[in-house]
Nucleic acid binder design. Structure first.
Length: 312
DNA sequence: AAGGCGTGGCA
DNA sequence: TTGCCAAGCCT
């Protein structure tokens, strides 16, 4: 049984023949964590929530500037709730997946009206808000409110797949993932949140998807994948996402026209955005209307939601 | 429960 | 160049 002199002396049971993963990763994180703006002292739970939404499927480097601008413009949920959705979508710019912006706007309205303008700390309550799922709810609970809950994203699943299960990749997300990570968390609340951040950081900077930098890994000597000789992934290969000519590309073009315009636009302006296939263009415009990302006015023109002052 | 949903950087 | 990928969510 390995006793330890680290701060995480009440960590989860050590693995056979060594200290717990947290005893290594928590100090490693304190020494090597990137200085990201939403990690700085004084970041509010609202700031953490905004960062988590922006970071969904989006690289850190692209999020830093928009995040700063958003928190300055809308420092509290009620501030964003008071803005029209069109302002939020324009501020979202080209971050991608604009439904995230729409859902964040709706979440801000729910927080402002139902939760006293305070970002909830309870995982279940967080998960009830639009755009907040399994990962984001726990990330906010842990990083904004210091709770001891497993935070499992793609980085954490990859680190656990390798270090614990000895597999090159993690495969599809499973219900088991939360329990897998929970047992790795130290008992201490603050240390547990740091451990979650450390697992994510390790996956983002060292134990990366392609070309892992094992020589720099703080847990190399206890990595099951390493121990097994780093076998190649033998599970199902994930399908490559297509792009050129897809509805996603067309929707992006249409929305880009509306973001760039000062107000409502005529139908011809949208037709010019995609002449390749008028049928596809019409179908995509319809799907944007269904999603609430676009509105059609009584005069036939199209606009971002709330732009004409008909909402909120 | 697979598949749809933006965008841009990098190897 | 082209394919892969980056702190998911929703249906």
């Amino acid at each position: 049984m390995g006793t330890t002199t680290s701060a995480a002396s009440h960590a989860a049971a050590p693995t056979a023949g060594g200290t717990a993963l947290a005893d290594v990763l928590v100090p490693w994180f304190r020494a090597h964590a990137r200085d990201l703006p939403w990690r700085r002292p004084g970041t509010t739970p609202w700031g953490v929530l905004v960062s988590e939404i922006m970071l969904q499927q989006t690289p850190v480097a692209r999020v830093e500037e928009p995040w700063r601008a958003w928190l300055e413009r809308w420092p509290r949920p009620s501030a964003m709730a008071a803005a029209p959705a069109s302002d939020v979508l324009r501020a979202w710019g080209k971050l991608g997946y604009p439904r995230r912006a729409l859902r964040l706007h709706a979440a801000a309205q729910a927080i402002a009206t139902d939760h006293g303008d305070v970002v909830p700390a309870d995982v279940e309550t967080l998960e009830s808000l639009p755009g907040i799922g399994t990962y984001t709810a726990r990330a906010v609970a842990a990083f904004a409110h210091g709770q001891r809950v497993p935070v499992v994203d793609t980085n954490v699943r990859r680190v656990v797949a390798r270090a614990v299960h000895g597999a090159a990749e993690s495969g599809a997300a499973a219900a088991r993932d939360l329990a897998d990570v929970e047992v790795l968390l130290p008992e201490d609340e603050a240390d547990a949140a740091t451990m979650s951040a450390a697992l994510m950081e390790l996956g983002a900077t060292v134990c990366v998807a392609r070309g892992p930098r094992c020589a720099d890994c703080p847990v190399l000597d206890r990595c099951a994948w390493q121990r097994r000789g780093r076998p190649a992934w033998d599970g199902p290969v994930r399908k490559a996402q297509t792009w050129a000519g897809t509805d996603r590309q067309v929707r992006g073009r249409l929305l880009d026209v509306l973001r760039g315009a000062p107000g409502p636009v005529v139908a011809e302006a949208l037709e010019a955005a995609w002449r390749t296939d008028p049928g596809q263009r019409a179908r995509c415009l319809d799907s944007l209307l269904v999603d609430g990302l676009v509105e059609q006015l009584a005069d036939g023109r199209f606009a971002l939601p709330g732009e004409a002052g008909d909402v909120g």
